[in-house]
């Protein structure tokens, strides 16, 4: 039976593949002209530095091989009981899986870090892009010697209405620090963190190897402000909370580990369906356990970061789980 999938990131693609495998007829509706979502902008994935394209490309190939229908450059305007309304008209279906994902936190909202104002303040997403382009350099083209990573930018921060933990930035910070060590073996690398949350398999081990084998310095404290210094450098201030003293240093590059914020389309889903959102504006699943890929409506399901920050692996698992739930629901019709 026909199932619409909103969003063609990893969660959407995997949901489609799984539903096809279960004998259904999924259609992916993607607002951009290409599938792959945020993963397209990523270079390597934690915890074992898997190239992002090694995950994405086999999935896209399967999608093509199985001739799954994709409507690209199409925006979903409303979810209805018998399908969805898109910018190209109505698509009828028996169930809808919302895989519309998350947005990257807009680092310019943390004005004190000067993102978009100071040349050598970049985000973790910018750094992945640089790595994809094969060149990491300062604005003047030279190599950074001293690099600081700041964790929790747009996470755990009520000032920018982001109370939640984005979950993946800690390990991304550790991963990127190790990558920077490989690019620049003689650099000094500092990670400023409040807590290091290494929840996944191999993460803690990766953190330890960053400390011990790669000589990454971890300083517990949140940077309070970044200011420009002659020559494009950046002065940062933090407290070294483990010794209870303020600390300042000048760095060549400041990398902001931006968090995941709720997708901007979530409010649209709420408006048209009566579905609800959590305090952080992610969609609220039916419950946190047995119903974690179901919504409050019987024919609408969720997979991936539409409901909370998740890793790629977790999003893929949810995609499979959602497909199973959809199939079970379609049985009852």
């Amino acid at each position: 039976m026909k199932v619409t999938i909103i969003g063609g990131g990893v969660a959407g693609i995997q949901t489609a593949l799984a539903l096809k495998g279960l004998g259904h007829d999924p259609v992916i509706i993607e607002k951009e002209d290409t599938l792959g979502g945020k993963l397209r902008g990523w270079h390597r994935l934690f915890p074992v530095m898997t190239p992002a394209r090694d995950v994405l490309e086999p999935m896209l190939k399967q999608l093509r091989d199985q001739q799954i229908e994709v409507m690209a450059s199409t925006e979903v305007q409303a979810i209805e009981s018998d399908g969805v309304v898109t910018s190209r008209g109505k698509v009828e279906s028996r169930a809808t899986v919302v895989c519309s994902g998350f947005d990257l936190f807009d680092a310019t909202l943390k004005e004190e870090y000067g993102y978009g104002i100071y040349d050598n303040v970049i985000t973790s997403a910018d750094l992945e892009q640089m790595m994809n382009n094969g060149k990491i350099a300062l604005a003047d083209g030279t190599q950074p010697h001293r690099i600081a990573f700041l964790h929790c930018v747009g996470s755990r921060d009520e000032k920018v209405q982001q109370r939640h933990c984005s979950k993946v930035c800690c390990v991304t910070g550790v991963k990127q620090a190790i990558e920077m060590r490989r690019w620049f073996p003689h650099s000094e690398i500092y990670n400023f963190y409040m807590d290091i949350r290494m929840f996944g398999p191999g993460y803690e081990e990766m953190y330890r190897s960053a400390q011990q084998e790669h000589g990454i310095q971890f300083i517990r404290g949140r940077i309070s402000e970044a200011a420009p210094v002659k020559g494009g450098k950046v002065q940062i201030k933090a407290e070294d909370t483990l010794v209870g003293r303020p600390l300042k240093m000048t760095v060549d590059m400041l990398v902001l580990l931006i968090g995941m914020t709720a997708g901007c389309s979530n409010s649209r889903w709420t408006e048209c369906t009566g579905l609800s959102q959590s305090d952080s504006h992610f969609m609220r699943p039916l419950d946190m356990f047995e119903g974690n890929v179901r919504s409050e409506l019987p024919n609408v399901f969720y997979a991936g970061t539409v409901t909370s920050p998740k890793t790629i692996g977790e999003s893929l698992n949810e995609a499979n789980a959602a497909a199973m739930r959809v199939a079970a629901y379609l049985e009852t019709l």
């Binding site: 201030k237 070294d240 003293r245 303020p246 300042k248 240093m249 000048t250």
Partner: peptide, 11 residues
């Protein structure tokens, strides 16, 4: 000044 100055400290 009480700050730990990582620019001037001998690291």
């Amino acid at each position: 000044a009480r700050a730990i100055n990582m620019d001037t400290n001998d690291l």
